[in-house]
């Protein structure tokens, strides 16, 4: 971890009371800053908040919001909510998996794209929905999926 990264971490810790109750909030901020949870950051979190490392690891692996591996520059998320499912979210996934050559949860080797599935983003009326780097796309036809990703 570089000095700069450590400064970022310290800034995050400064935002929270140093107790176990801050754990999830701290991890979320680390995830936002680094796009994943670097191992050293988790160790530092355990030390700073006085929480056993096992508990930090437990929380980090329990919640979907956290990723333990670095993610790509473009995060492609396909919604798998009920409405999206019955409106063909699987087709989007088929296109993206074959087009990017990765499965959900994976990142392309060049670290350009990460493909993820999410359980409902609450835009069900526009199903099927996919989100490319926080930009929502509704009513996505399967032959448009890959274009929307590559365009960004």
């Amino acid at each position: 971890m570089t000095r700069q990264d450590l400064t970022k971490l310290t800034a995050i810790f400064d935002h929270y009371p140093t107790d176990a109750g801050s754990l999830i909030g701290v991890l979320q901020d680390i995830q936002r800053e680094f796009h994943y949870l670097p191992r050293e950051a988790m160790t530092k979190t355990a030390e700073t908040l006085g929480v056993p490392l096992s508990k930090v690891y437990s929380v980090a692996t329990f919640y979907n919001a956290f990723s333990l591996t670095p993610r790509g520059d473009t995060i492609v998320r396909v919604c798998k909510g009920t409405a999206c499912h019955i409106k063909g979210a699987d087709l989007l996934l088929d296109q993206l998996e074959s087009g990017l050559g990765i499965k959900p949860g994976e990142t392309t080797e060049d670290m350009k794209y990460t493909l993820e599935v999410v359980n409902c983003v609450g835009a069900c009326a526009m199903a099927p929905v996919m989100i490319v780097n926080n930009k929502y796309h509704g009513n996505v036809a399967c032959n448009r999926a890959l274009k929307l990703v590559k365009k960004d």
Binding site: L23, Q28, N64
Partner: peptide, 23 residues
Amino acid sequence: SRGGGAFVCGESSALMRSVAGEV
């Protein structure tokens, strides 16, 4: 308190544990 993306946290006792920073 921001949830971490777990459906089970809609359940009251799980939600409260999550608010307390736990699994």
